[in-house]
Nucleic acid binder design. Structure first.
Lengths: 146, 146
DNA sequence: CGTATTTACTTCGCATGCGAACTAAATTTC
DNA sequence: GAAATTTAGTTCGCATGCGAAGTAAATACG
């Protein structure tokens, strides 16, 4: 007989996120990159030279979030900021050689994590999970608590 | 035909957690309490006088995490720390009257959130989600990356 | 009994990311 | 074309929580 699963979704979500983040951080301890940072690497891997605002939107980060992330990653030599020639307010972000190396490592790491996340679940089940997670974006909108 | 769902689970998990946290924070803006804080309130609601370590374990927080949370909540007047009479190293945590009020509010808020989280999903689907979230605790263990 | 180890918690430095308030450049309006 | 508004980022203070290192009390060991 199956045990009734723990239904404290808010708590479980919180724990899962922290566990994963911590695990990625330890995993990539040597010369690696954190989960948030690899997020930006992936974006730039697809769209090198993106604006900060574009990257923030893609990562669902507000202006302060992307600003801080960019600062830390610039400091770490993973990305470079260059002024947009057409807009004096804007900055474009570019991968450095070092950033490209880190991106390659992140890609490999992500494959392992995804395997771990799907292990023991069918494709249909993962689809349900993905749908549930995606629903947060409409259930808990950014702007306002209507 | 259904659109293929977004399968970037790591990203979706991260976003979902942040969206929820932010939403709770805004929701309880007036005299309320954050998600992490209400976690501790719930624990003490069930086990008033718990040790810090016990509370930390229940919330899946390490010593620094629970220590900081307790500091902030003590400062906010939600809980009280009293030395354990039998163990000079340990502290027991107690709800203040103010904390009990906040707990009652949190309980009401949680009901609404849980409804929102389950809306559009069957019980069986929520069980799958819960099982997936719970699996992080074994898939990404605290101690070590084996 | 006294030393060694374990345990409970604290402190520090850090990454993450939010809301509020700000700066400065671009665009819209009149 | 000047003033008003919008937009792109920054800065500040804050909450969250980790790992590493420290403190002090409790327990185990010889």
């Amino acid at each position: 007989m199956a045990t009734r699963p723990d239904r404290r979704l808010v708590f479980l979500l919180n724990v899962a996120q922290r566990r994963l983040q911590r695990w990625v951080a330890t995993k990539t301890e040597k010369g690696g990159v954190t989960a948030a940072q690899s997020g930006l690497l992936f974006i730039l891997g697809q769209r090198d030279g993106a604006l900060m605002g574009e990257a923030g939107t893609a990562l669902d980060l507000g202006p302060p979030g992307i600003s801080g992330l960019v600062d830390r990653m610039t400091m770490a030599g993973l990305i470079e900021r260059r002024a947009d020639p057409d807009d004096g307010r804007a900055w474009r972000l570019w991968l450095t050689p070092s950033g490209r190396v880190a991106l390659a490592q992140s890609k490999a790491g992500l494959a392992e994590i995804n395997a771990r996340l799907a292990d023991g679940f069918t494709d249909a089940e993962i689809d349900i999970v993905a749908r549930w997670l995606t629903s947060f974006q409409t259930r808990f909108p950014k702007g306002e608590v209507q």
